[in-house]
């Protein structure tokens, strides 16, 4: 029994010496850690986490696009995975309606309010 206790104590001491430098906190047997969240995630969940880690808080383009100057030379860029995308133009700040228009690849389009949109290829997350 005494030798068994000694073995356990010695084993744990050795383990502490070996692993204490690896992790920031010193932890014994009772505190086995869980998988790292990023290592644990896979598929779209992982892509989303990686995008957020890279500073992209909107990897799926779900948020409203910020308008640029919107001139012919400097149109608002509309990212898309396809050859065309529907844009809802809020022509002025207090507008109560949204003007919908299709924007096709390689064909910048002007809304009736004069704002220009151009389709660009979206980078996949």
């Amino acid at each position: 029994m005494a030798s068994l206790c000694r073995q356990i104590v010695r084993g744990n001491t050795l383990r502490r010496v070996l692993f204490s430098s690896a992790s920031s906190a010193r932890r014994g047997y009772a505190d086995q850690m869980m998988p790292d969240p990023l290592e644990h995630a896979t598929g779209m969940e992982r892509k989303e986490l990686l995008a957020m880690e890279a500073g992209n808080d909107d990897p799926f383009n779900m948020k409203v696009l910020k308008k640029s100057a919107g001139t012919r030379e400097n149109p608002t860029l509309v990212p898309s995975c396809f050859d065309a995308r529907i844009v809802g133009c809020i022509c002025e700040e207090h507008s109560t309606v949204v003007t919908w228009l299709w924007v096709h690849k390689d064909h910048p389009r002007r809304c009736e309010c004069g704002h220009w949109y151009k389709l660009i290829e979206k980078e996949l997350p």
Binding site: T42, G43, M44
Partner: peptide, 9 residues
């Protein structure tokens, strides 16, 4: 868990 289909949304 295994296919990672559960995004935040």
């Amino acid at each position: 868990t295994l296919q990672g289909n559960h995004t935040i949304l």
